Amino acid sequence: MCRHLAYVGPSTPVGSLLTQGPHSLRTQSWAPREMRGGGTINADGFGVAWWHHPDAAALDHGPGVIWHGGAAGDPAETSPVSTGPVVSRYRNHVPIWTDPAVDEVLPQIRSAAVLAAVRSATAGMPVERAACAPFLHGGWAFSHNGAIPEWRGVLTSVAAEFGSASLLDAEALTDSAALWVILRGLLDVGTEPGAALRMVAGAVLQRSPRARLNLLLGDGSGVWATTWHHALSVLEGDGFVVVSSEPFDADPRWRPVEDRRLVRVRDGRVSVEPLDIEIGRAGS
């Protein structure tokens, strides 16, 4: 399983969102509170994605402030899009608390939208950089907190249902990476993000009722998430929103999201609605 977090709001240091609060995402890597049977620690790598505008480098944001994520192939990768913000990413397969970039580099980068995750690898899946969320495509970033039993057969069947690209296109041999191939195919044809999450979750759960599917998706201005078995909370502040597996501080504005819900964050507003996925007695 994993812990993940998404932020949209005023520009903020990317690194601070990994370390903010007494129960920060970094702290959750070794002391999570709400794993719900999904392991005990999240020490199998981490990643963070952030968005910036292509012309941001030409603007003067003050000394020591970086607004870009490096060229593709560098440790900080960039996924360009033709219009709108560009998403960049930094990942490492080591425990987040061992990587000095979290304190020395990432705080120098600022963004108004961030998506991050720490990983607990499911038994039998590789511990490697390519297996760490966030996964990118175009202007999208994606994370999956959970697991899909018998995922190879399940996702092969789901991919066939949706006419997805080959699962061999997945970045890593994991359920999360393969799930992203299916989901990004729906996004590419214009499916509304919340509807795409609901469709994919429903198709998976019909075939694997014990799947755990807390999905987290961002595009640089909005956030979409599901709760299916694992915990999720939302913090609405003054002009910002955080969606996180666990609250990172004691701010009374945090509120838990019920299970089997779809969360949308658009224009700084949060909506929560039932997923309305019927899977019968086996999934209850």
Rank of each mutant, 00 (worst) to 15 (best):
P247H: 06
L205V: 09
V181I: 14
V94P: 00
L197Q: 01
G194W: 07
A133W: 00
L17K: 05
R207H: 08
R91A: 14
V241K: 00
L205Y: 07
R207C: 06
T27S: 05
A201Y: 00
L183C: 05
P22K: 05
V14P: 00
G37N: 03
V105H: 07
S11R: 15
A170Y: 09
N92M: 08
F135V: 06
S111W: 07
I277A: 04
A211L: 02
L187Q: 04
D238F: 08
W254T: 06
R264D: 10
E161M: 08
H144Q: 08
A165G: 14
W180S: 14
L215F: 05
V272C: 09
A57I: 15
P10M: 05
H53A: 13
A130H: 12
P100W: 09
S88V: 02
L5F: 15
L106T: 10
L5C: 05
G47Q: 06
R91P: 01
R91D: 05
P100E: 08
G163A: 08
V81S: 15
H4D: 14
I66C: 02
L155H: 10
C2T: 07
S16I: 11
R212L: 11
P100V: 13
L59Q: 15
R255T: 12
A147Q: 13
G64L: 07
V114D: 06
I277R: 04
A58T: 15
W30K: 06
E246M: 01
H229K: 13
Q108A: 13
A6V: 02
N214D: 13
A159R: 12
I279D: 04
A141H: 02
N145W: 03
P256W: 12
L168S: 15
V181D: 01
S82P: 00
R3H: 09
G37T: 08
I277F: 01
R119T: 10
L216S: 01
V81P: 00
L115Y: 11
S24G: 03
L25M: 09
L155A: 11
F248S: 10
L217I: 04
R129K: 14
A147K: 08
W254R: 03
R152W: 09
L215Y: 07
G139D: 07
L197W: 09
P149T: 04
T227E: 10
